[in-house]
Design a protein around this nucleic acid. Structure first.
Length: 462
RNA sequence: GGCCCCGUCGUCUAGUGGCCUAGGACGCAGCCCUCUCAAGGCUGAGAUCGCGGGUUCGAAUCCCGCCGGGGCUACCA
């Protein structure tokens, strides 16, 4: 019987969860779901300087919002606890000691300045830099502060990548790298493979930035005598507008929480992310999550990075909004327009639906309901039209259909066009040039409020 | 600098030697619908397939060189 699939994502709480986090999480979940596997969330918090505990909560929240729930993780436990690297320090210490004892690692007493000098020198001589191994062959005397370096065995490291096929790297080009920092914390190149092995990961699916890190990690796993993951998958990077890798610091707009705040639907973002770097080979663009699970495959994944395109996301999000039932859309809109009562919101939805590519846009359409626009200046002909509108509306049933009918006969009687007639009404009611269709604009307002705004506009003229 | 990945309309992509006068989607333009804004319908512009050499009867598709972009090369992850 085959071992069941285990995959993971391992974000570091050095910032908010961003598009890249979501993207790798998605592919991991898709693959796990396809194979009845387990999706693990591990927190790689070994950077003492930059970790902030509150970011961990943000990561949980963002992933849950997207519906990318994990089976094992720091908040829900599992058979390989703990799932926070900061709580596994003794494990790394032990493994490092083992490497030290077996001669696969050694202590390095070099100072950052000395290493910097080595690097500069190599650059000057135009030779590729690898650590000199000074501390292996001729360690300086009398120093107490040290880091631990992995002794790179050289040779070739080969592995299978589900996206790119067979990969091979020449390890003689890789210098002895640090696996334990002088503060006692493990580096990513060490903690990550140790945990992948210990947590029995069968597949490692992550961003392309880790492709060249893979040989480092495989060498560590080999030296420790653990079993390697069966395969890797290095997914194309999500690029910013300038073509550079999306980063938390340079691209704060990639914060997932912001997507929620702007009114993007999680299912739309998922759909868009899936299409960034992967394509089904058909012309289908809209995919439910279950459809993605059934049709996704690594061999149709792009090898090059893809620029994130807000325009296309907006379109997709609009499509998803339009496909929501009125009830469901009203529900999702609630938090964005807390000033609007439930009933009014539900009545607004049919008109709102085709006019939004994100939920926040409802605010622009509805805020005339809870604000009071100043009466505009009107010429005498316009005043007449407003007056006849008031007359027409006076005894009408307060619903869009009836209002529309009443207004249309008033328009016909006035001899003016709908534009001339409706534009000032819109202006008086909302103070804006753009609004929902005029009969909706009226109907959503309480009748007395609507009529008093119209009355007031007429009186305001001298 | 070294190693690795990539290079088709502005963007995301289809395409694995002839089906390509290079297809789709977003965006853009025009028209229709229309009280505004959308949505919807129709039409259109937009890519000498990074460049230069080959191979071949025939290349976006194969080979070589170059150029360009990105990633890694940290006591960040």
């Amino acid at each position: 019987m085959a071992v069941s699939v285990r995959v993971r994502i391992a974000p570091s709480p050095t910032g908010f969860a961003h598009l890249g986090t979501a993207s790798t999480a998605l592919y991991n979940v898709l693959f796990a779901r396809q194979n009845g596997g387990t999706f693990v969330l591990r927190i790689d918090d070994t950077d003492m300087e930059r970790n902030r505990p509150e970011y961990e909560l943000l990561i949980f929240e963002s992933l849950r919002w997207l519906g990318l729930e994990w089976n094992e993780g720091p908040d829900k436990g599992g058979p390989f606890e703990p799932y926070r690297q900061s709580e596994r320090l003794d494990i790394y210490k032990e493994e490092a000691a083992r490497l030290l004892k077996d001669g696969n690692a050694y202590r390095c007493f070099c100072t950052p300045e000395e290493l910097e000098a080595e690097r500069k020198q190599a650059q000057l001589e135009k030779r590729p830099y690898v650590y000199s191994r000074r501390c292996l062959t001729d360690p300086p005397e009398g120093r107490t502060v040290f880091a631990v370096r992995f002794k790179v065995p050289g040779g070739e490291v080969a592995f299978t990548d589900m996206v790119r096929g067979d990969m091979r790297f020449d390890a003689s080009l890789i210098g002895d790298f640090i696996i334990v920092k002088s503060d006692g914390y493990p580096t990513y190149q060490f903690a990550s493979p140790v945990d992948d092995a210990l947590m029995k990961m069968t597949h490692v699916i992550r961003g392309e930035e880790h492709l060249s890190n893979t040989p480092y990690q495989l060498m560590v796993i080999d030296a420790l005598g653990y079993e390697r993951p069966a395969a890797f998958a290095h997914m194309p990077l999500i690029l910013a507008q300038d073509g550079a890798k999306l980063s938390k610091r340079k691209h704060p707009e990639s914060n997932l929480i912001l997507f929620r705040e702007q009114g993007y639907l999680p299912e739309a973002l998922i759909n868009y992310l899936a299409l960034l770097g992967w394509n089904p080979g058909t012309e289908q663009e809209i995919f439910s999550f279950d459809e993605l699970v059934s049709v996704f495959s690594f061999d149709r994944v792009q090898h090059g990075g893809a620029r994130f395109d807000w325009e296309k996301l907006n379109w997709l999000n609009g499509e998803y909004i339009r496909n929501l039932s009125d009830r469901e859309l009203a529900l999702r809109l609630r938090p964005f327009v807390p000033n609007v009562d439930e009933q009014t919101l539900e009545r607004a939805v049919p008109a709102l639906k085709t006019r939004m590519h994100k939920l926040t846009q409802a605010i622009d359409y509805l805020n005339y309901l809870w604000t009071d626009p100043a009466p505009p200046a009107l010429d005498s002909a316009t005043i007449e039209r407003v007056r006849s509108a008031i007359d027409a509306l006076q005894d009408v049933e307060w619903a869009p259909g009836a209002i529309e009918a009443a207004l249309e006969s008033a328009v016909a009687a006035s001899g003016a066009g709908k534009g001339k007639f409706y534009t000032p009404l819109r202006d008086v009611l909302t103070g804006k040039k753009v609004s929902l269709p005029i009969h909706y604009t009226l109907a959503l307002l309480p009748k007395d409020v609507a009529l008093s705004r119209l009355h007031r506009a007429i009186k305001a003229q001298v």
